[in-house]
């Protein structure tokens, strides 16, 4: 008998500050109306490092998260600081399987400094929050949305993330409410 807690779990694999993650957890809670827990996590990323690309294979990381002992949580999302890729794409901000149990998100390419701009912690937190909510949306079965302000809009550049809000549009909200416990 499975004992799934109707809670979303954020796992800190990136040595993030507690306050930073608590703020994100609050925003996630507001969007999904579910309790959000934050746990510290440890994982060896070495097997997923591609020395030619100098990036980490997101597929491998996601598989290892899924193959760990079954989560007690409704959905879990791993938070990283490393540069993620999947074999066919040059980079990704995050990854989650549709209706899958887990997802991952990285802050690496969300930093202004990567684009030669001044560091901005508020912007960074806002971007990371949007990626986290977006990937969790996929884990709850939502596909990309064409509404310009919806958090489920596809974002291939960091500027795209800035253009959208961290909220679901009314249509995605209706779809989400149907699957939330």
């Amino acid at each position: 008998m499975s004992l799934i807690t109707p809670t979303i779990l954020l796992i800190n694999y990136g040595d993030f500050e507690k306050n930073f993650l608590q703020a994100i957890a609050r925003d996630v809670d507001q969007e999904f109306h579910l309790p959000v827990s934050v746990e510290e996590g440890t994982t060896d990323l070495e097997p997923y490092f591609d020395s030619i690309r100098r990036q980490y294979n997101a597929n491998g990381i996601l598989k290892s998260m899924d193959s760990d002992s079954p989560s007690r949580y409704l959905k879990q999302l791993g938070l990283f600081r490393v540069d993620l890729f999947i074999p066919i794409l040059t980079y990704i901000f995050g990854q989650a399987l549709l209706n899958g149990p887990s997802g991952i998100a990285s802050l690496y390419r969300l930093r202004n400094e990567v684009y030669g701009m001044a560091k901005d912690e508020d912007v960074l937190r806002e971007r990371f929050t949007k990626v986290v909510i977006h990937e969790l949306g996929h884990a709850f079965g939502l596909v990309h949305c064409h509404h310009p302000a919806c958090v489920m809009r596809s974002s291939t550049y960091v500027e795209d993330i800035d253009q959208k809000s961290r909220h679901f549009c009314s249509q995605c909200r209706i779809t989400l409410e149907k699957v939330l416990p």
Partner: peptide, 17 residues
Amino acid sequence: DEESVRDSLFNWFREDG
């Protein structure tokens, strides 16, 4: 022929509906 490519694209396009 590469499974990882197929899987990556499969997931990417499914997310797009």
